Simulated assay, not measured.
Amino acid sequence: MSNSHLFLKSGFPRAPLQNGLGRYVCQLQRITLKFCKNNGSSRGMRDFIENHLVDFAKENPGIVVYVKPRRHRTPVLVGEYLNGEREWLSCRNSTQDEISKWIDLLKTQNGSSSSLRLRKMWHTDVPSIQGPWTPFMLRSPDALSQKYPSSEASKPLDAPTTATEKLIELFKQQKLEDEADISKKHAK
């Protein structure tokens, strides 16, 4: 078992700003492309900047794009999100297509998915006062003490009458009352 989770922040999954209930708000606030002008491992980053960066900036006006040349360093993508989190990705020896896919991934994330150890896989803003539901919640307490296989447990439960069956019963009662009224009228 790994102990790598000990150094991660702990929390609950949560949609930031209730994203998706109203209009969609892109959580990526700014992206920084760091690269070397001469290093061979930055070739894909340089190609992306020359060919696709202007189109990306036009398509996403809500994301601020910074380009930062650095000497003798490996290319890096840094995404900063509205919640203050930063996502750092190394793009060493990546092609321009791979870099565009990494940027799309940063654009669609909310910034807290990979750097957070989830305590639960679900979260609600309004927790239940009654506690969590279990399959044994509405069972009879007698079922807990039974030994299985049991002939009593295998019997079908008395199903409540359906609305259709109740209507048929009411119709039959009404028909009997009408016949009784008719026989009283004829008896007079």
Score class of each variant (00 low, 15 high):
Leu138Val: 03
Lys185Ser: 11
Ser41Phe: 08
Trp102Arg: 10
Leu167Tyr: 07
Ser154Lys: 14
Thr162Gln: 05
Gln29Tyr: 03
Thr161Trp: 06
Asp104Ile: 00
Lys188Gln: 10
His123Cys: 11
Trp133Leu: 14
Ser145Ile: 11
Leu176Ala: 15
Arg139Asp: 12
Gly40Ser: 14
Gln146Glu: 15
Leu28Ala: 10
Arg92Val: 09
Glu87Asn: 07
Ala187Met: 08
Thr164Gly: 12
Glu85Asp: 10
Trp88Ala: 02
Ser90Met: 01
Ile168Arg: 12
Leu116Ser: 06
Asp158Val: 14
Asp181Ser: 12
Ala159Leu: 15
Met121Ala: 14
Glu98Lys: 04
Ile99Asp: 03
Ser4Thr: 04
Thr134Met: 09
Asp55Phe: 09
Arg23Tyr: 03
Asn93Thr: 05
Trp133Asp: 12
Lys34Val: 13
Leu170Asp: 11
His5Cys: 00
Pro149Leu: 10
Val54Leu: 14
Thr164Ser: 11
Asp47Trp: 07
Ile168Tyr: 08
Ala163Pro: 04
Ile168Trp: 06
Ser10Cys: 01
Gly40His: 10
Glu169Arg: 14
Trp122Leu: 10
Tyr148Ser: 02
Trp133Val: 13
Asp125Pro: 02
Lys147Gln: 14
Ala180Val: 05
Pro160Tyr: 03
Arg43Thr: 15
Gly20Thr: 03
Gln109Arg: 15
Gly20Phe: 06
Gly111Phe: 01
Arg92Ala: 12
Ile49Gln: 07
Arg86Thr: 12
Thr134Pro: 01
